[in-house]
Design a protein around this nucleic acid. Structure first.
Lengths: 194, 194
DNA sequence: GTTGGATGACCTACTACTAGGTAGGTTTCT
DNA sequence: AGAAACCTACCTAGTAGTAGGTCATCCAAC
């Protein structure tokens, strides 16, 4: 019921997510959250016993939000090309005009310094994205929309890595168009031209 | 004369580079270096007044080493396809079997928290890699070896982002083959099939 | 009167960085 | 040649500040 508490928890998660996407896990502190939300650092430990707990929930939420969005894509269209386009549009939105990175890409870079439970959620995030892309790519190849060599698993891994890399460079150069054109070229590279 | 000092400085740079490629700039400390090299943290400041100075030199060195290697590629072969293959092989070697990331990718993710002077070196690193790739791709399209839409600059940016992303995921999954197959697919996507 | 939520005060460990000193070698001056 | 001056490379011992985390306490709502 505690609408106040629930909203505090929610506010903490939202602020932490932004900090994590801009600065990374290692470069934001409970004090940062305290300043941002206006709650003492000791109180943060009430909602999240440890920073690892917070980090873990951050990734889980991020993953589930993206899963929900892909479900909406699946419901809206069955065309593989359009599905991929919409997926890319979602990632682009997350960049916030080149001011943020994907949480997965950020935590992927910080991977070796993350607490174990956070690491495994990060891997699950990647695997989830890739498995959705596997279906899209496999269906697209079947329908003649896509063309690529190797199995769909490898193509999905390569595609997702490309998109993550493009989000990273877009943020570093503060230039969203770097992501847009890279995603565009990746999509065309998969397309069947004949 | 300063054979001892020069080797200490060298040892610090090598250790710092490994730490930076595995843990990142924000996640290694002068104490880590102290423990690794066996010199007190205060003495590290003798060689590098601030951590930013160390970080800056790290990126400059990394960039110059890669520039030297691309020069060797250019001297050895003029075939665009082979040049790209060799470039990819250099990046693969740097992964150390999936235990390290590219320094550029790591610092790219940490970008917003890096000291200004380090940031600008990181950008220069990216621009250097991309401009070398621009030449390779442009020559390859000219010769009929490569085929891609848009200008070579965009293609080079997208390709390099793909490779960086693939290095990131390869490290997270401790699986070098993720990079190898992704690089392979990226190369094939650029190839002219007819 | 118990419980959910927040607090102040505190702790330990660590961060980059600095002040001042020193052993040993080289350079310079006489 | 010998003394004075200087330099390199490192040290001990410290600075102020920050990290995540603990604990007893408080207060309002049911």
């Amino acid at each position: 019921m505690p609408a106040a508490s629930d909203s505090t928890r929610e506010a903490l998660l939202n602020a932490a997510r932004e900090l994590a996407q801009t600065r990374g896990y290692n470069a934001f502190s409970f004090r940062d959250l305290s300043d941002l939300i206006g709650v003492k650092t000791a109180s943060i430990h009430y909602h999240f016993p440890t920073k690892a707990d917070l980090g873990r929930e951050l990734v889980i939420r991020y993953r589930e939000q993206l899963a929900e969005l892909t479900r909406q894509i699946d419901a809206r269209t069955s065309d593989p090309g359009e599905r991929l386009d919409r997926f890319i549009a979602i990632l682009r939105t997350g960049l916030k005009k080149g001011t943020r990175m994907c949480l997965g890409g950020m935590f992927g870079a910080e991977y070796s310094t993350l607490p174990g439970p956070v690491q495994s959620e990060v891997r699950t995030f990647f695997e989830g994205c890739e498995s959705w892309l596997v279906n899209v790519l496999a269906a697209g190849r079947e329908s003649g929309r896509f063309r690529f060599e190797g199995n769909p698993e490898q193509a999905a891994q390569a595609l997702f890595a490309s998109l993550e890399g493009a989000m990273m460079t877009a943020r570093a150069f503060h230039d969203e168009s770097r992501f847009v054109t890279a995603a565009d070229l990746a999509t065309r590279a998969l397309s069947n031209h004949e």
